[in-house]
Design a protein around this nucleic acid. Sequence first.
DNA 1: ATTAATGCAAAATCTTTGCACTTTC
DNA 2: GAAAGTGCAAAGATTTTGCATTAAT
Lengths: 160, 160
Amino acid sequence: MYESKGTEFHHAGEPFKGRALLERYGLRATRQRLGLAKLLFGKGDRHLTADALASEAQAARMPASLATVYNVLNLFAQVGLVRGLAIEGGKTVFDTNTSNHSHFFFEDSGAVCDIGPDCARFAEGIEAPEGYEISKVDVVVRLRPKNGGPAVVARHRLGV
Amino acid sequence: MYESKGTEFHHAGEPFKGRALLERYGLRATRQRLGLAKLLFGKGDRHLTADALASEAQAARMPASLATVYNVLNLFAQVGLVRGLAIEGGKTVFDTNTSNHSHFFFEDSGAVCDIGPDCARFAEGIEAPEGYEISKVDVVVRLRPKNGGPAVVARHRLGV
DNA sequence: ATTAATGCAAAATCTTTGCACTTTC
DNA sequence: GAAAGTGCAAAGATTTTGCATTAAT
């Protein structure tokens, strides 16, 4: 795909330095935050809901309570480590790529994936109303399976 | 602003024909649906949450229970009379303009308003993955008050 | 009459919060 | 040891659902 801001936190081969990352953002390095950061930033861009991350943490033997996962994700979003996306009414999806980019949303599976940076131009030419400035631009391209095609294939090809 | 799809349902001066509208979409013309349709389509484009609409209905002496408002809005969304927007995590905003257009979201006030159709070009040049087709494109430009400016002004100028 | 819609209250979700306990610095 | 974070359970908020009642064709 393309070089995302996420790679700022991870270089192939090198061990993931969660402690350094957290301290760079003025955050205390607690066990839970280190574990969640490793899952979030340890390997490429990710799109996760709070409970999905909690499950992963459970599976990876670095559990954190759901409340803590919410606290940590909200905190990370505040300092700019992740970005919250309101794609489907219910759950908030947290994206480790914090740059202004666009998303495909698969209506059948609920999967979310990045669209290349060429879509950055979306924001070009938009003028904010007087007294305001653009905080960020969210573009979601919603996809549905074409006619009767087996949509599941694309899900695996593109990942979540 | 611009000619929106919403005007399809309302022509200045003429009485609002809710019954005709509902029947055109194969929906039964119940008292509640007629009342809600009048509020939604009676005067220009609107961006409303379910409970805001319920409150309006209450005030306009054509009350409908919140459950019914949800049912009706979801039904209207299904048949294409309105479109649901997931802008902020919590509430779903229903937009009476069902065309692919873009929105300003005012982070301070929570207000939502349309951006002109020039933003339709956003969807141009995007190719759906194999087996999928684009269902719709949601573009939300999030705005924050510039420095210390009195942001409230813009809220009134632009409406909700 | 038949069929569908409404309203209420209860349930389901997702998220936040209060507070005692634990951890980090 | 002081300050901050965590976990639990409870509370909030939004949306959906089951079912008896009411309304529309």
